[in-house]
């Protein structure tokens, strides 16, 4: 996204907010995300009511002073649901990104280093990669029943092979480096080699990867809800709001509009942040992308 620094005139860099000037979009995206996370954490204090309580007589009301963004088909407050929905998106995004990176890292490190395991693990990963992620996730959710946990697991599983491949490719390059070979030759134990020499090389690309996983997890949560295999409807999530709102989008467009916008803005911000991180942390990858 953001332009390499060399393309900007050096004079500008001496401004009051050099970072803002260099990466204006990244900073804005970071601020938006910060606000969303704050709203999610302090949802009860964001002038909200109970996002699940229904007022049958107040259904499908347009925006008003009492209901800032209107009400949905069950007479629930859209603003409150939007704010509480941020929690679900943030939790799903962070949990999937965190878990898939950690699990992928462990599998990738081991399979990249332990040759006899590599073939088996990579066949399993190839198998998982070959199944379209959405289908795997829908199947997993319908197998284990809709709950936030199963949704997180279902979205996470198809992401793991991508992380494993990334980690493995780093391991395969690094293990041939002289300092690693040296460490091996003086009898350093495997766990130490992995954590001290190989792991640090994996971190920068993984952080970048994690942001993309986070964005795609939020998107997938919404798609699963859209297809009726997502977070249970009793939990206010943007995906559920879109899924329920789409039925009436010609009557009460705000039910689809606000969560749709929130979703797009959040994912957009995560993606921009990811691009910014990539430019800083992983110049090689930045050049490739």
């Amino acid at each position: 996204m953001s332009a390499p620094a060399t393309s900007l005139p050096p004079a500008r860099l001496s401004g009051l907010f050099p970072f803002l000037r260099r990466y204006p979009l990244v900073v804005i995206a970071g601020m938006i995300l910060g606000l969303i996370v704050l709203a999610a954490v302090f949802a009860p204090f964001m002038f909200t009511r109970d996002p699940t309580s229904m007022s049958p007589l107040q259904r499908l009301r347009p925006a008003s002073e009492a209901y800032w963004l209107g009400t949905d088909h069950l007479g629930r407050d859209v603003w409150s649901r939007l704010v509480y929905g941020a929690r679900v998106s943030v939790i799903v995004g962070l949990a999937v990104a965190g878990l898939s990176v950690i699990i992928g890292l462990v599998i990738g490190l081991i399979s990249g280093y332990v040759r006899w395991l590599d073939a088996v693990v990579m066949r399993i990963m190839d198998g998982l990669m070959a199944i379209p992620g959405i289908l795997l996730a829908i199947a997993l959710v319908s197998v284990s029943g809709a709950s936030l946990t199963t949704v997180i697991i279902a979205i996470m599983v198809p992401e793991i092979p991508r992380v494993v491949r990334l980690v493995r490719s780093v391991v395969l390059t690094v293990r041939e480096e002289p300092y690693v070979e040296a460490a091996v030759s003086i009898g350093t134990r495997l766990p130490l080699i992995l954590t001290r020499h190989i792991l640090p090389n994996c971190i920068p690309p993984l952080i970048v990867q994690a942001t993309y996983v986070c964005a795609s997890a939020m998107l997938t949560e919404a798609i699963l809800s859209f297809l009726g295999a997502g977070t249970p409807p009793t939990i206010p999530s943007w995906g559920n709001m879109v899924a329920e709102g789409r039925l009436l989008f010609q009557i009460a467009p705000w039910n689809l509009l606000w969560p749709g916008v929130a979703l797009a803005v959040t994912i957009l911000s995560v993606n921009i942040l990811g691009d910014g991180l990539r430019d800083r942390l992983d110049p090689k990858l930045a050049k490739r992308m």
């Binding site: 996204m1 998107l219 859209f226 879109v242 789409r246 689809l256 797009a264 994912i267 993606n271 921009i272």
Partner: peptide, 10 residues
């Protein structure tokens, strides 16, 4: 980036 961010059904 928009392409990656807007859900297909939206």
């Amino acid at each position: 980036v928009l392409g990656f961010s807007v859900p297909v059904f939206v």
